[in-house]
């Protein structure tokens, strides 16, 4: 039984002007925030599961932007900001049109690239960050793998991280 379904979005949108060129990199504005799918999955506790990757490791994009970039639903894209880069799936937004803006639900994926600048107002800047979006072949990591690859807390040799086995979708600990 699952509560999470992929949001209903149109399948394919073609570029309106056939002469417009496809672009390799798009300069966009990044917003992050909560979303009902993310909220339900997070608070149910299913953060290790593939489900969480499907609701949080996604960038909701305007179909026109996706057409420009030449990506389809559930293709992977790399989003880069001044604070980092992360690979997420591109997904047609339910709130389109919002050309030039992408939305990544809050979660470990979004927070790799959000700004920790608080400007002495205690609150980091989670919204309105300039970013670039490009197509990539790299996979979207599961939550546990992402935390290990980005923050490297219990990794001895950082260079071995890509070869390490996935931590999987279930808790890993030594039982008594």
């Amino acid at each position: 039984m699952t509560y999470i379904e992929k949001p209903v979005v149109p399948k394919v949108v073609k570029l309106e002007e056939p002469t417009a060129k496809e672009r390799k990199i798009l300069n966009m504005m990044l917003n992050t925030g909560s979303d009902i799918y993310q909220g339900a999955c997070k608070k149910r506790g299913s953060t290790l599961k593939d489900e969480y990757r499907k609701v949080c490791g996604v960038a909701y994009m305007d179909p026109k932007d996706m057409a420009k970039l030449g990506v389809a639903n559930w293709d992977t894209v790399k989003v880069t900001t001044d604070w980092g880069e992360v690979v997420v799936c591109s997904v047609h937004s339910r709130d389109a049109p919002h050309e030039g803006t992408i939305f990544i639900p809050k979660g470990p994926w979004a927070n790799v690239i959000t700004s920790h600048e608080t400007y002495c107002c205690c609150d980091p800047t989670y919204k309105g960050i300039y970013c670039t979006v490009e197509k990539t072949d790299e996979p979207v990591l599961l939550m546990a793998d992402l935390m290990r690859a980005v923050y490297k807390k219990y990794v001895d040799d950082e260079e071995t991280i890509p070869e390490l086995e996935s931590l999987g979708e279930m808790p890993v600990y030594k039982k008594k």
Partner: peptide, 30 residues
């Protein structure tokens, strides 16, 4: 682990973290 910006979580990866919670989440990983 899930809701702090990366710049802040990076320091959490350098210090001891104690977690009191009900579910295994991104914070449990650190």
């Amino acid at each position: 682990g899930a809701h702090y910006p990366g710049g802040a979580v990076k320091h959490l990866a350098e210090i001891p973290v104690i977690q009191v919670d009900i579910h295994w989440g991104p914070s449990t990983e650190i």
